[in-house]
Structure formats: C-alpha cells, structure tokens
Design a protein around this nucleic acid. Structure first.
Lengths: 154, 154
DNA sequence: GGTGAAAAATGGGCCCC
DNA sequence: GGGGCCCATTTTTCACC
C-alpha cells in the first residue's frame, strides 16, 4: 500500500465536503496547476480511497423525516442464521445502516421512514418477518444533532 | 411547496447513487433531451432537495477502521445543558453522527477512530470532558452490514 | 503544460396546456 | 400566456499525451 502525502489528504478532505469542487479550484487552494490535481484524483479513485460520488438529499423534503435506532438480538447465533439476517437486511430499503455489534445487542439498525405508521408497517411486515429475531428494541430520534458522511482525515 | 413528479424522483434516485452521472446519461434513461434534466437538477438544488454533492471515502484505507456506537445519558436535563452538549458534539471530528433520542438514553453517537487506543483517548480527553454526562456506554462495531447515504424515495 | 473531446451552462424558439 | 421541452451555441472542464 502506497502512502498518501499531504496534497492527497487535502484533496480528500475537500472532496468529501464538496465533490463539485473542480480540479482548478482545488489547484488554486494547493498552489499547483490543475493537471496534477486531476491525476491525483484519478489515482485516488483507482486505488479505492474515493469509493463514489453521491448527492446528499434533504430527508424532510423527500418525506423520510422519522429516524429510528433499532437494536436487534438473535435467538440463535449460528453462522447460517447470522448470514441470512445480514442478507435480508441489505435488501430492506428503509434500513440506511446496520452494524453487527460486540456485546449483548447483536445488531444496531438505523431506519428512515415517512411516518410512525410506516414504521409500524415496517416492523410488522418486514423486520419481524425475519426469522430468529429474539429481542427487538426501537427508539426514536427526536433530533438529528450531527450527521455527516465525512471522516476525520489526518 | 411544489410537488415532484416521477421524472424528478428518478433524477434524485440516480444522483444519490451516483452523482457523476451526466445530464446526458440521465436524459437517455428518461428518454428526454439533456436540457430539461439540467434544469430540473438546478431546480432541485435550489429548492433544497439536493443539499450537496460529496465523495464517499473508504474508511479502512484512510485509517478509520474502528466504529463505535456510544450511548450517552445526561445527569440533568436543563435546556442549557442539552444545548451545550449538542454544540460540543458538533465540533468533535471523530463523531460522524449524533442523535437526541426519545427514551432512557439521551443521545446515540457513532464514532470513527483509527484504533482502540485512539478511542480510549477520545473518551478520556474529549467525550468525558463534556460536563453533565451521567451514563456513557460504548459498544464496538464488529462488521458493517450496510451503510449508505441513500434514502428510499417513493 | 497543452490539445482535442466532452460536458455544462445559456438563450431562443416551439408546442401544448 | 406560461411552463416545460428541444435545439443550437458558448464556455468550461475533462482526459490524454
């Protein structure tokens, strides 16, 4: 694995805040010409540092205002059950995040829905249909204090 | 607030998956010319549906492999304490997400760090320095099953 | 650093509500 | 008459040498 220099890190910091910044703009910040900036960005994409570029939408405007954190524990912990659970979670479009955890809680899920009614339907018809779920504990987000896709670089 | 038609929704679905799709490519999918696609995207940006465009980085490659979910409860629930807590959390760059929750747990945080040692330092020197924290319970992510910035549209 | 290709952005004009 | 779409043009950016 090759290491990144300060120029690479600066480029990554800029792009994870604003992917629309042009190579020219970044070049001005770095006091170099646009060409090496292009090349570095292409390299960072190719090496996998930059996975993709996405638009971040306003969840209230697109009617996904309700966010819940849902803790799930399995009844049995066979490899097969775990894998099947993970597979099924992937396909649930309401689930934005899912983590397999250390400790008593097996999985933590973050779910976005339109309304409390929709969450009810989600749990009733989708989540609880997954077999082998033991404990299922939902808590509702009152306010989003911070939510970013950025990582601290450096 | 104006409503979005199916064309708008399709554009949003495409862009939150891949912001590099050109207006021309989107136009081909929609069977229209690029111009209305441009115009709609500008409008969606102006109206706030699209908040920003960002690069998604690989957290392992940039050395943020350790993710923890941290549950925090406050000792006192004065407005002033809550607001100060929220303010201080905003400025912690290790914290990627923070939600004010309903229920016994006041806040849920998602934190990315390089190593267990760094997490130790984070809790010791940053998080626990915030006054009025009562309970602080960290659990570690063993595996990221799903993590997307996309919302289900529709 | 420079060049050809491509995409973004803009403006005029058309058609259908 | 207005909104949305198409087409043509200019400007900017990209990608490659």
């Amino acid at each position: 694995m090759e290491y990144l220099d300060q120029t690479d890190l600066t480029i990554l910091r800029i792009l994870q805040k604003d992917a629309k910044k042009t190579a020219k703009e970044i070049a001005e910040i770095l006091n170099i010409t646009p060409s090496p900036v292009y090349e570095r960005i292409r390299r960072l994409e190719k090496q996998g540092y930059i996975k993709k570029y996405v638009a971040i939408l306003d969840k209230d405007l697109i009617n996904r205002s309700i966010t819940t954190i849902c803790q799930v524990s399995m009844r049995y912990h066979d490899e097969a059950f775990i894998e099947k659970f993970e597979e099924q979670i992937q396909s649930l479009e309401e689930v934005q995040e899912c983590y397999h955890m250390a400790g008593q809680i097996d999985f933590v899920l973050k779910i976005n829905v339109k309304s409390l009614e929709e969450y009810h339907d989600f749990v009733k018809y989708k989540l609880s249909k997954i077999e082998n779920i033991g404990v299922l504990n939902s808590t509702f987000v009152l306010k989003e204090i911070k939510h970013t896709s950025e990582f601290f670089i450096g």
